[in-house]
Amino acid sequence: MGAGTRGASGGAWRPNPVARTVLIVLSLAFAFLMLVMPLLVVVSQAFGAGWEAFWRAVSDSFTVKAAKLTAITTVTAVAANTAFGLAAAWALTRYRYRGQGLLTTVIDLPFAISPIIAGLIFILTYGRLGWAYPFLEAHGLKIVFAVPGLVMATVFVTIPFVARELIPVLAARGTDEEQAAVLMGAGFLRTFALVTLPHVKWALVYSVILCAARAMGEFGAVSVVSGHLRGKTNTLPLHIEILYNEHHYREAFAVSAILVIASVLVLAARSVVETVSRREVR
């Protein structure tokens, strides 16, 4: 069954077979050269010296600490952005007020701003020369060059993921069912939990997965605020860069393989979610 059969039976649209072949070959070749092959190289390099060398690299105490830190920043960023995303999507689709457009635009900012600027704004705000520093210093708090800064930088770059995904779903759904629930006496929380949430369930899961994938791999903004303190503020992507720069190629590839495998798992989770949600909608 090719794309042509449909055109033949409908009679309205007949694709050019040459264009079809060319397009398929081009996109497959592009995907292979740009995505699949380099990733395969990383994985094969990682295991090139055998399981034992791979295991030694990934069980190194600095790698384990970096992995733990990445887990912390990812979980916190996802939790924060899920809460914010739900609130913002609700606020943007259920109420009318001045400044609505502004909020929509602001949510998208992290997509447009370069990660280095995202990092620098935190340094300039919370660093020793920043205006918030005297307050932090007086209360014994540390943000940049410490874990809170890493979490904030990660939250910053992943802000749009959940909100962007939920807004169109909530907007398309309309407010009829929620109004009905409210008329029947349900409170805000009850309406939200029993009417709104079930509708956006899959969109939410989907966006959380993407958000997690992006948070895990965040490099730019985090690199600026990290200070690169080994075992303290090095996340996995930063650790990989350091290993690579220090001629530890095998170890760098081994640790990269952890991130690649994690991404593949996330993508697998995403397609499971897509399949399940499509079945449910039908």
Binding site: I123, Y126, G127, R128, L129, Y133, K142, V144, F145, G227, H228, L229, R230, G231, K232, I242, E246
Partner: peptide
């Protein structure tokens, strides 16, 4: 605890509050 990077960049981070 070690931190390594370009010399000028590392000095900058100490100035900005890397203790």
């Amino acid at each position: 605890v070690q931190s390594h990077g370009g010399s000028a960049k590392q000095a900058r981070s100490v100035i900005e509050g890397n203790e």
